[in-house]
Simulated assay, not measured.
Amino acid sequence: MADDLGINHETLRNWIRLDDAQHTGTSATTPASMSASSEDENAALRRRIRESEEERDILRKAAKYFAGETRWWEP
């Protein structure tokens, strides 16, 4: 499900824990563990951005290549 939402698995797990804690009235995590979790999430997001930028660059190069190879206007 986390993949469908485009988020880290740990992020979804933390959200579920926080939601459960709100319904039961207990504390789900300590601030220190939230900080580490946030750092993990940020690292995962940075990786994902880097991968997306690489994919974008590849697609741009491919589009430019195929646009140059295609001659729709010539007989």
Rank of each mutant, 00 (worst) to 15 (best):
T29L: 14
H9L: 00
M34R: 00
E51V: 07
P31T: 12
T24E: 11
D40R: 14
R17K: 12
Q22D: 10
I7N: 09
E53V: 00
L45Q: 14
A32D: 14
S37W: 10
E53Y: 06
A43G: 05
E39F: 04
E39D: 14
A36C: 10
G25A: 00
E51K: 06
T24H: 14
N42V: 04
E41G: 03
A21S: 07
T24Y: 12
W15G: 01
R46A: 04
E55R: 15
R48T: 07
E41W: 08
A36V: 10
D19V: 04
H23M: 14
T26D: 12
T24Q: 13
S27R: 14
L45G: 02
E51C: 06
S35N: 11
L18W: 02
I49T: 07
S37I: 08
H9S: 08
T30M: 00
E41M: 01
R17G: 01
G25H: 06
P31N: 13
A32C: 05
D20R: 15
I49Y: 07
N14K: 13
T11N: 10
S27P: 04
T11P: 08
E53W: 01
M34L: 14
A43Y: 03
N42E: 11
P31D: 14
S35C: 07
S35L: 07
Q22A: 15
S38E: 04
E10S: 02
N8E: 09
N14Y: 02
D40A: 06
R17D: 03
L12N: 11
S38P: 01
E54I: 02
P31A: 15
E53G: 00
R13S: 13
T11S: 04
I16Y: 05
L45Y: 11
A43F: 06
I16Q: 10
E51Q: 05
D40Y: 08
A43S: 11
D19N: 03
D20T: 02
G25W: 01
